[in-house]
Design a binder for these strands. Structure first.
Lengths: 132, 132
DNA sequence: GTGTCTGCAAAGAATTTGCAAAGAC
DNA sequence: GTCTTTGCAAATTCTTTGCAGACAC
C-alpha cells in the first residue's frame, strides 16, 4: 500500500491514525484541517483533534505533505504533492500543475535579467483564473 | 499626505487609527499582525487589538493592502503593494518584485502550452532563495 | 523492553462579537 | 444629525500542552 511505504520511508512509525490521515490526503489532494477532520470522521471513526494536528505537523516536517496558500484569502491548504510544483486556483478549486519546463523558463529569465538574485532554491507559479 | 488620499480614495472614512495602520504598513511594507501592533504601540500609542483587526480587514477588502504567504511555512503577511506583483523570499526577508515582462512571459507560455486554462486573472511568481 | 504516539482534558492563543460612547462627514 | 468606527470586555474559535496509558518495533 502506497501510504504505508510513504510514511515508513519518511522515517515515521506506522500508526492507524497516520495511515488514516495520509489516506485522507490521498483522496482530498488539497485540504484544510477542517475538511480533513470531516473526512476522517466519515471514513475512519474517532480521532482526536490534537492527534490530527500532530500528525499533520509530523508529515509536513517529514516532507510528506506541503502547504499551499490561496493568493486572495491567504487560506492555507495541506497538499499531498510535496515535490516542487505550480498551482492553479479556480474559484474554490485548487489544482496542481506540474511543469518543469515552466520552472526552467522562469529560472532562466530571472538568472539573465536579475543576476543579483543568487542561489535560487525554488520557483512557484500561482495561476488564478476566473471561474466560468 | 499619501496615506490620507489612499484611504479616502478607497472609499473609507478617515480615522486616526486607519491613518496609523496605513502609515505603519508604509514603513513595514510586509508585516504580520504582531509586527504591526508592535509598530503601532511604539509609534502611535494605544490602539485596541480588535480595531487593528477591523482596520486591516477593511483595507484588504478595499484593495488597499494585499496578502502574501511564505511558501515554506504558510505564514501570511499583509503587503502594502496591492497591485499585481511577484515576490522574493530570502530567509526572513520578503521583497516585492515588480516585473510585468515576467508576468507576460509566463502568461504567453501558459496560453500556448495549456490552452485549456482559460480566463487567467492573475499570475504570481514566488521565488525562494537560500540566505547566504 | 524502550521510546514514541494517542486520547483526553485543560491551558493558552488568536480572532470575533455586542454594545455604548465617540467621531467622521 | 446620521451613520460609521472605536474601545472594551466577553465570547468564540483555533491550536498547543502535560500526562498517563497504549502501541510500534
Amino acid at each position: 500500500m502506497e501510504s504505508i511505504d510513504n510514511i515508513r520511508n519518511a522515517g515515521l512509525k506506522l500508526t492507524p491514525q497516520r495511515i488514516a490521515v495520509y489516506s485522507a490526503m490521498i483522496s482530498l489532494r488539497h485540504a484544510r484541517l477542517e475538511a480533513i477532520v470531516k473526512y476522517l470522521n466519515e471514513h475512519y471513526g474517532r480521532i482526536t483533534l490534537s492527534t490530527v494536528y500532530r500528525v499533520l505537523e509530523s508529515f509536513c516536517e517529514a516532507g510528506l505533505l506541503s502547504l499551499v496558500c490561496r493568493p486572495d484569502t491567504g487560506e492555507c491548504y495541506y497538499d499531498i504533492t510535496a515535490s516542487d510544483h505550480h498551482h492553479l486556483f479556480s474559484g474554490d478549486t485548487i489544482s496542481d500543475y506540474q511543469d518543469e519546463e515552466l520552472t526552467q523558463l522562469v529560472l532562466g529569465y530571472i538568472k539573465s535579467k536579475r543576476p543579483d538574485i543568487q542561489d535560487i532554491e525554488k520557483i512557484q507559479v500561482l495561476i488564478t483564473t476566473n471561474k466560468p
